[in-house]
């Protein structure tokens, strides 16, 4: 007898949230027609944060792979874009191709780092980010610390460029949210959560732990590379120290921890919070960064479930929850 499993049903709140999210993203698509350039730039930054938070949450929240080196992919995508443009490819196709090209690095990297455990993995990813940054800085094209501008993109009409980048960012966030939702509600979601809880036990019930972790690692890396390309398209200038900066990981960690590690809506809430905090306190320089650290520590100590955990408690009734991943038939 073969038992067929189905996905758990969606609650009314779930469908309402999905509809609201779709409407919001659709509104963002038409916003460039009426909004000021400053607002368009700010919204692009928000979309990049959402993309980064969703990507990091996939890795840490669902597969238990806490990385402080995801800036590897943010920085590499920008570098690949510069190289492709230098090779004569038009900037917009280069931005797309640069993101995809990073997977050529992420794939072999996954064979090494995914065999490491917990803290080893986290540290190794950081070391890899710093090593690759150093190598990139040796390339004369980048001009060391000085960096380089994406001149061909700068030649484009500024308003048109802003509009295209925001539309691409909204599209990327939509794809990331739908993809992660579908992945995590399916078999991979259950498997990754089992690995997060106990990797050895997951292996002993038949889960190919390396395959699952590699899939999530690559999807997460792709999200970070797209964010990196969007950042470059928005900022125009590429500086290795910024592109490979640890700040990216700090922001990702903050957004996911404060929003709700391992929840679907948490990273989005975390991104909104980080964006709002930056808007209000961003001018305070290092004090602002210290403040972020204090807030993250307070959440880790007193609200480990983040904002989502505070709202839902331990009721398992989290909106758009991944808890309904697999449901066996009755009887």
């Amino acid at each position: 007898m073969t038992t067929r499993y189905r996905l758990g049903g969606l609650s009314r709140l779930d469908t309402t949230l999905m509809a609201a999210g779709a409407v919001l993203l659709a509104l963002l698509l038409v916003l460039p027609l009426v909004a000021s350039p400053l607002v368009v730039d700010k919204l692009t930054l928000l979309m990049i944060y959402v993309l980064l938070a969703v990507s990091w949450n996939l890795l840490a929240g669902f597969a238990g792979l806490v990385s402080v080196g995801q800036q590897t992919f943010v920085g590499l995508s920008g570098y690949f874009v510069l190289r492709l443009v230098e090779a004569g490819i038009a900037p917009l196709p280069a931005l797309a191709a640069g993101s995809a090209a990073v997977l050529v690095v992420a794939w072999p990297l996954s064979w090494i780092v995914l065999r490491l455990r917990a803290a080893e993995f986290a540290v190794a990813m950081w070391v890899i980010a710093e090593t690759i940054r150093s190598l990139v800085m040796f390339d004369p094209l980048v001009q060391g610390e000085t960096g380089r501008s994406l001149m061909t993109l700068n030649a484009m009409d500024a308003d048109l460029r802003r509009t295209i980048v925001l539309l691409a960012a909204v599209l990327a966030v939509s794809v990331a949210l739908v993809t992660s939702y579908r992945l995590l509600r399916g078999r991979l979601g259950g498997e990754s959560q089992a690995i997060r809880d106990d990797e050895e036990a997951a292996g002993s019930i038949g889960i190919d732990t390396l395959r699952v972790k590699r899939t999530i690692f690559l999807v997460s890396a792709l999200g970070c590379t797209v964010a990196g390309s969007l950042w470059l398209a928005s900022a125009i200038t590429y500086q290795p120290r910024t592109a490979f900066g640890i700040n990216w990981s700090v922001f990702m960690l903050f957004m996911v921890l404060v929003g709700g590690l391992g929840s679907f809506t948490g990273p989005v809430i975390g991104a909104l919070l980080l964006f709002a905090i930056q808007e209000v306190f961003g001018d305070y320089g290092s004090w602002y960064l210290a403040g972020l650290g204090v807030v993250a520590i307070l959440f880790a100590l007193y609200a480990p479930g983040g904002v989502v955990g505070l709202i839902t408690g331990r009721s398992l009734r989290e909106p758009l929850s991944m808890r309904k991943t697999l449901v066996a038939p009755r009887g």
Partner: peptide
């Protein structure tokens, strides 16, 4: 060594899916 954050049903179903 159960998957402690998952329900009893999820523990069983994930194993069934992979066995």
């Amino acid at each position: 060594r159960l998957f402690y954050d998952l329900t009893v049903r999820e523990n069983l179903v994930i194993a069934a899916e992979n066995g």
